[in-house]
Design a protein around this nucleic acid. Structure first.
Lengths: 188, 188, 188, 188
DNA sequence: AATGAATGAGCATTCATTCAT
DNA sequence: AATGAATGAATGCTCATTCAT
């Protein structure tokens, strides 16, 4: 990836953490990245194009990290590891998580299509891990894996943000453990 | 409440469902409500004033409905009832749920203060209900009630929206049951 | 017509005479008219909208003036009078004539549709006058009235502009007479 | 002429037919020509330089064609032949004719100086031909040759474009004949 | 001789807000 | 209590031009 693109991604993420996507101007992004405004349009065509590319890039990174735990032998441990990874990612890229939660469920939002596809990707990883837990007979009867996966994804996102925004005094370990406790409720 | 205010609330909610708060103009809101633009400023002082009042109004309604189940004798049944009510509210006022999820965790968001107060109110209701479950010894050991309450609030919001936006074919009953199943995992 | 609209028409015409339509900025038009930039958008929706309205307004004025000579008893005199009126109009509203000649034959130009309709209107007036000349047996045999009308309209426009731009030293009377001489060639 | 220059001329002409000069970007021209944007600046120094060179090139071609009929023995036949050639040129290079008519009478237009010189060249050829007709005593008395020449040039341009844009169904022969009929009116 | 990534001044447009009625 | 014409700061975007390769 070109230096300009990388710098613009980083600048966008940094500013989005502070102000959200709505209050983000191309002027500011370019200034923060240390490039001219035109560079945004040369590389991404539009502000939307930049955000779209950023979403794909960021969610790609997340997917990669989440997949890294797929080969854990114990399915429940793997699921816990997945949760831990998700939390760590949200903490590291808070701006990104805020973008996701702001835009993901906006009906015809400008990036709805992109987000739908990316969500499918992530949810699918969670689903696979949950399925392994289910196959091991460690999910309560009646739980539908696809629904549970979608729910778990959203919950993780929201819990991570709630922690950062409203309970910043809590340690990451505390939050991770409380989510894991909830998950543990699932296991017989 | 005056007719104009009521009409403006309804118009805002309707439009927010389609476009989110960011893409909402005072012109559009006034047109949808069938009043002149000046009326918004006469009644609420500013666009932010309108949104702020709308948030207080909507969350007040939600709090009222949630509290209605506080006197259920069995705490677990009460918790389930609370979830059911939350889902129903989100389905009925989708635009409102979208506003919440879009704005709630935006750090210096324009309505951050208002939302923080309102969130506290709702989370507190959930917390009370969860505490009753804990007091009855039906929560897994180690679960911290305040954390769990915040998490449950966010999860409910997110699951409801995910249902409406990405899985509209599913019936409300299905979604409710799957959330309840997860909750049931908590109970021994 | 509102004051703002009128002022914007006049300002646009004035500036278009100096710089043509291409080099015209909304900032400059608004400043010249003594209104805020937003007023352009409030009244006309866009820069194109302003130009479009201006074309309709200006061509309407021209049509009105041209029709004023329709009741001249002698058809050839009427035609000469029409030419004279056209020249006077072009001299008075040079900017308008420049807009017309710049945009009229631009294939998918932004105002192509509007211009086509308006051209039809003017050409039709010329056509009626020419038809009266033809009915009086004073057109050379074989001349097709519709074609001749379209040609006369364009010629008038171009001769008027050529006079103003490249031969400003010539008096209006001279130019009028030379065009009339050409026309007189038509008459037996 | 280098290949790049030729390709850029052709590309500019092609695009100008569709969009006029104003809506023409260096990006588009270079893309259409199949060269890099920098090549325009390497060869012509600026966009204006390219247009300027194109105008000289195109009008040179036209002048060459028009002069080819100067040795026709009968002056009226020569004039008719000149008209025919002009129409044919406009039909072949419509984009060029559109550029001319759009820019020729724009007062301080960017290429005003160049266009003035070139116009003089063409008008001079027409003037010579008309003078021969006048010398043969076949112009109505009182017609001033310089004025008539300027008028004929503009008329030809405008009639040709009107035909292409608003009356494309008419055959070229028809248009030629109707212009010639008008001219014939000039002859005793 | 040619390239194309990068630039930044300039522009059309949006929209919350004001105020005279 | 309500209106809507007018405002102007703010913003996304365009495009001719430059320059290192």
């Amino acid at each position: 990836m070109s230096t300009s693109k990388q710098r613009l991604f980083e600048a966008t993420l940094k500013l989005a953490s502070d102000r959200g996507l709505a209050g983000l101007t191309v002027d500011d992004i370019a200034a923060e990245a240390g490039v001219a405004k035109g560079t945004v349009y040369y590389n991404f065509g539009s502000k939307d194009g930049l955000i779209d590319a950023l979403l794909r890039y960021g969610l790609g990174q997340l997917a990669e990290r989440l997949r890294a735990h797929a080969d854990e032998p114990d399915p429940v441990t793997g699921l816990e590891s997945l949760v831990d990874t998700g939390l760590a990612f949200a903490a590291e890229y808070r701006g990104f998580a805020q973008i996701l939660v702001s835009e993901m469920w906006r009906t015809p939002g400008q990036w709805h299509e992109t987000l739908g596809l990316l969500r499918e990707q992530i949810v699918s990883i969670v689903k696979d891990q949950l399925q392994r837990v289910a196959d091991a007979g460690r999910l309560p009867e009646g739980v539908q894996v696809p629904t549970a996966a979608a729910g778990l994804f959203g919950t993780l996102l929201v819990v991570a943000l709630d922690w950062q925004v409203f309970q910043p005094h809590r340690s990451r370990a505390e939050v991770r453990d409380s989510v894991l406790l909830l998950l543990r409720g699932l296991a017989r």
